Amino acid sequence: MTKSVFYLSDGAPVEPEDVKEARDKDRENSIIKPFMDSVREDLVANKIYLPTLPALALEALVVINDSDSSAHDLEKVISRDAALTARLIRYANSPLYRGLNTIASIKPAITRIGFQRVKNAVYAVSMKEVFRTSEKDIERRMNRLWAHSVKVGAQAAILAKEQSGLDADIALVAGLVHDIGQIPLLIKACNYPEMIANPEFLDKVLFKLHTQLGGSILKLWKFDQHVIDAAAEHEDLDRDPGEAPVDYVDVVQVANIMSYDGTNHPFASLDRSSVKAFSRLERASADGSLDAETKKVEDVLF
């Protein structure tokens, strides 16, 4: 069949729309496919880049997981890092732990949070370091990813406080790491200039792979299964747990969708009645008080 060619009045040829779409699709595939194939090869060979928590945070987690350790042992470790100490004190004074008095030192902060629950607090206040990069090509993206993760984590924590059986600390961590799978993909993309030059292609790859990769990373890090599930399933808008109790996937999914309010992201115009998580939560609307509490938790993490 002869290909149709159209001309403008000045004689310049106009490419038919279907031909242009096919050509653009071929170009997209030629850029995306090699990148995705390489990611899958890295996964099989266990060569995927894994971000790590700061050394002192890992040391604090070892102390927390040691049944013979005391609050005093934990205090000694945390006190060696002024930044970690300050963040944990702010965390203990946040809306997640309302107390009669403002805490000013690490010992009462640990007491208020609780020795075992400090684990999630350490994860929360240390996670910012995981989102740092020296790669200039993706630095702005990584900063946006951290800001989004903080918003989702804070929102999830506040929502979880109002659900029976859920822990706000776990919800906060689940929200902070829900997109953790994007980090190794962004780092790897730096070796693929065409991916960096075409952000819409990179967005498609991130959407396709980040949940599976995120769940795998958190499994390797030995995170709580609830947190792993939230990272792996939060984009599944057809998820329907039936009569099962509200869980952390629900709160992270709702928090993630709500985080896009007022933007041009597709989730901003999503019909929320079609997402089961919204009807499963007792309170899933961004009213003023919810926003105010969320902002206070965000401030602790930045």
Rank of each mutant, 00 (worst) to 15 (best):
M1Q: 11
M1G: 13
V5M: 11
L8W: 04
G11L: 15
A12N: 14
E17V: 15
D18G: 07
K20P: 11
E21R: 15
D26R: 07
I32V: 13
I32D: 06
K33V: 15
F35W: 05
R40A: 10
E41F: 01
E41A: 12
D42H: 08
L43F: 06
L43K: 08
V44F: 09
P54N: 10
A57L: 12
L61I: 07
V63A: 07
V63Y: 01
D66L: 03
E75R: 12
K76D: 08
R80K: 13
D81S: 10
D81Q: 06
T85E: 12
L96I: 13
L96P: 15
R98Q: 10
N101K: 14
I103R: 13
P108T: 02
A109V: 04
G114A: 08
Q116H: 12
A121G: 15
A121Q: 09
V125P: 15
I138G: 12
I138K: 09
R140T: 05
M142P: 15
R144A: 09
W146G: 08
A157S: 10
I158H: 05
L159A: 13
A160Q: 07
K161Q: 15
Q163A: 04
S164N: 11
S164H: 13
D167K: 12
V173D: 01
D179E: 02
P184I: 02
L185H: 05
L186A: 04
L186N: 11
Y192C: 04
P193Q: 02
I196Q: 07
F201E: 11
F207C: 05
L209C: 07
L213V: 00
L218W: 00
K219T: 05
W221D: 00
F223M: 03
V227K: 00
I228Q: 01
A230K: 01
L237E: 03
L237V: 04
L237S: 07
L237H: 15
R239P: 08
P241V: 04
E243D: 11
V246K: 02
D247Y: 06
A255K: 12
I257A: 08
I257E: 01
M258R: 01
S259E: 01
Y260T: 14
D261M: 03
T263D: 09
N264H: 05
N264D: 09
A268K: 14
L270F: 06
L270W: 06
D271K: 15
R272S: 12
V275D: 05
K276S: 15
K276Y: 02
A286M: 15
D287Q: 05
D291Y: 02
A292D: 11
E293Y: 03
T294D: 03
K295Y: 07
E298M: 13
E298C: 13
V300D: 02
